[in-house]
Computed example of a mutant assay.
Amino acid sequence: MNSSTHHPQILFAAGEASGDMYAAELMPRLAERLPGVSAFGLGGAQSRAAGIDTIVDMDQVSVMGLVEVLRHYGQLRAAMNTLIEALDSRRPDLVIVIDFQEFNQRLAKEAKARGIPVLFFVAPQVWAWRPGRAKHFDRYADQLAVLFDFEVPLFARHGLPTTHVGHPLLDLVDREAPERATARHALSLTADETVIGLLPGSRKSEIERLLPVFLEAADRLLAADPERRFVVPRAGSIDPDWLDAQIEAADLTDALRARLSVTEGGARQVMAASDALLVASGTATLEAALIGTPQVIAYRTNALTYALARYLVRIEHVGLPNVILGRTAIPERIQHEATPNRLAPDIESILSRRGAREQRAALGEVRERLGAGGALERLADLAARMLAR
């Protein structure tokens, strides 16, 4: 091989669990198309396993909400400075930023100021809040890749090259989600017991707010049927001792402690094994929808953050499945409504034969609306074309 051959270098920026997963899936696809490609940047364990040099770990930046960002401003600034310094010292050929909007927009703007092309994957939800942002998004991206086809005209009409690649979860869920019987066997659950999955999020701040509520709702559900089982999957970003301490600190009955188990990772396994789910609003709600498990969506954040969001948000729904459907097919309990008094009856409703049947029909419609798979292949092709230019 000619020693002067240039091997492309990419900076990835994935500040959340879903972005880390997408970066890890994208890296080997790029290696197939671009022999010798290397990558570094912001990511987590999955990115590292895929060969990306994570000079900043996503645990350093994984916060959500105005108050939480202000509280962690110092470490966010340090992470940004590290990445900006790497733009100057390592001069990547392409920057691929994945969601994590406010942080990644700042980083992308710095890259563009240095003449480094930027591929931005996952558009800001301008259809939900601050629609005027679309006209200025070319400040942050040379190419935008979007999840939903209706997003293309929102950005393309302002002159930004915008490509609908689709949603990666279609392929990932179909490839990785086990069958119900297999999932139950792996979790030591019998075929006939009622299983309820508790998924309070992948950030500590989410878990601190939602896990106690989910556990209290589980106590009530267990009181109605003492044979029910409850499973909490621990996200890879969460320290097991910290999570155990959160559960230990909760005011649980002895009966629930005996019927509650924590799994290492395997959120999709828990989704597949469960009859119903309590899920923190986010990507997990769409994963569960694609697996076909009935769910209740919940979320709590800082009061100031919530008040600001209420002022800015212009859509009726928070959960991704409901956003895609344009109606409330899945119960949403946000902020003051996310209480055991609301969540336990919601779960009881979808455990009924009629409730489960109605929600599963709606979840099938979510899958149909997302269209064909192959999103990561299309995204890799797009990145390769940008590098070729």
Rank of each mutant, 00 (worst) to 15 (best):
S3R: 06
H6D: 03
L11P: 01
G15W: 10
E16P: 02
D20K: 11
Y22A: 09
A23M: 02
L26S: 11
M27P: 01
P35F: 07
F40R: 10
L42N: 06
G51H: 10
V56D: 03
V56F: 09
V61W: 10
S62D: 15
M64F: 02
V69M: 15
L76D: 08
L83W: 08
A86P: 03
D88L: 12
D99G: 04
D99A: 07
Q101S: 09
L107P: 03
G115T: 08
G115P: 05
L119V: 15
F120L: 06
F121P: 00
A123P: 02
W129T: 02
W129N: 02
R130G: 00
R130N: 14
A141M: 08
L144I: 10
A145K: 05
L147T: 13
D149G: 00
P161E: 14
P178L: 13
T182N: 03
R184W: 06
V195T: 11
S202V: 04
R203I: 02
E208P: 00
V213L: 06
A223T: 15
A223C: 03
V231C: 12
W242G: 05
L243E: 03
A250W: 04
L260V: 07
S261G: 04
A272L: 06
A280V: 06
E287Y: 09
L290P: 02
I291K: 09
G292V: 07
L304D: 01
L308T: 14
R314P: 02
T328W: 01
R333Y: 15
Q335I: 10
A338F: 08
L343E: 04
A344I: 09
P345H: 09
S349E: 14
S349C: 03
L351T: 11
S352L: 04
A361P: 00
L370Q: 05
G374E: 08
A380N: 11
R389W: 00
